[in-house]
């Protein structure tokens, strides 16, 4: 599995698509931070925070919170990573080379998920690092202690990357079932929109557990305690296990 991750990492770092994605993410972060504009797809937009962010002079911490609220848009940019890391394997049938090399189906699926998680983590880290760098360049205050800023940034980075990776794990399952990069990419696109739209028409409380970006916002705003975070993590873990498990069962029975 480690060999597969190394191979994917080599391929990713030798692909223009990765650097373009990284560039777009950094540019998006720069624009939000500089213009102090917040936007994204949310089920429960935190009005207080939005109002405050639109009025106040931003500190670096406000920058982190503002960009977190805008992070749902990153899904669309990060589709590129999904296509490079796993989509291309199926569209070009290069998975044959991979599977013939003696890697098990479980290792293949897990390696792909881990690689997606790593690449998303790198990209999201760059996204928030840009906020801090731009804030400092623009002479803004930190807005809190450096330790608090760094811990908030770190936790938010992990939360956003993890939540995006959960959506991508659903996309991996879709890809393996349908063999279609297009359908799985469409799923990534519609997921946050669907959660927000369904919430408007059906007032289902449980939707908050799959409103990953809403949770990320609450994390960055410090509104979720560790004990409150439990059900969200559990939901994610269940989705992840089900997606990887069903992907594994599907690929085992599939004619490749």
């Amino acid at each position: 599995m480690i060999n597969q991750i190394r191979a994917d990492m080599y391929r990713l770092t030798h692909s223009w698509g990765f650097y373009i994605t990284l560039g777009l993410v950094v540019a998006y972060s720069f624009l939000i931070t500089k213009s102090k504009s917040v936007g994204g797809i949310m089920v429960n937009g935190n009005q207080d925070a939005l109002t405050r962010l639109s009025r106040e002079n931003w500190t670096a911490l406000d920058g982190i919170r503002g960009t977190t609220m805008s992070s749902s848009v990153l899904m669309y940019v990060l589709i590129g990573l999904f296509v490079i890391i796993i989509g291309y394997e199926f569209s070009q049938q290069t998975y044959k080379n991979t599977l013939i090399s003696g890697i098990s189906r479980f290792q293949f699926i897990t390696a792909k998920y881990v690689m997606l998680l790593i690449s998303i983590l790198i990209t999201i880290a760059a996204y928030f690092a840009t906020v801090i760098a731009v804030s400092l360049i623009l002479g803004r205050h930190v807005g809190t202690s450096w330790a608090h800023l760094m811990s908030t940034t770190g936790i938010t980075t992990i939360a956003v990357a993890f939540f995006i990776s959960i959506v991508f794990s659903i996309a991996i399952l879709t890809l393996i079932v349908t063999n279609s990069v297009v359908i799985s990419s469409i799923l990534i696109v519609i997921f946050p929109l669907a959660v927000a739209t369904i919430h408007i028409f059906a007032d289902w409380n449980w939707l908050k557990y799959i409103d990953f970006f809403g949770v990320s916002n609450d994390v960055s705003l410090g509104k979720l305690t560790i004990s409150q975070f439990g059900p969200y993590l559990l939901t994610c873990a269940i989705i992840l296990v089900v997606c990887i498990g069903v992907s594994l069962l599907t690929i085992r029975e599939k004619e490749l």
């Binding site: 060999n3 080599y10 391929r11 223009w16 013939i100």
Partner: peptide
């Protein structure tokens, strides 16, 4: 299978990588 090499149906390679880079991917795998 680790002792087996195979080319089944049309050969599949990563189009945007060079011959050298494609082989490096296989070597790492």
């Amino acid at each position: 299978l680790k002792r087996t090499g195979a080319m089944i149906e049309s050969p599949a390679a990563f189009g945007n990588l060079t011959v050298d880079q494609n082989l490096k991917v296989i070597a790492k795998q």
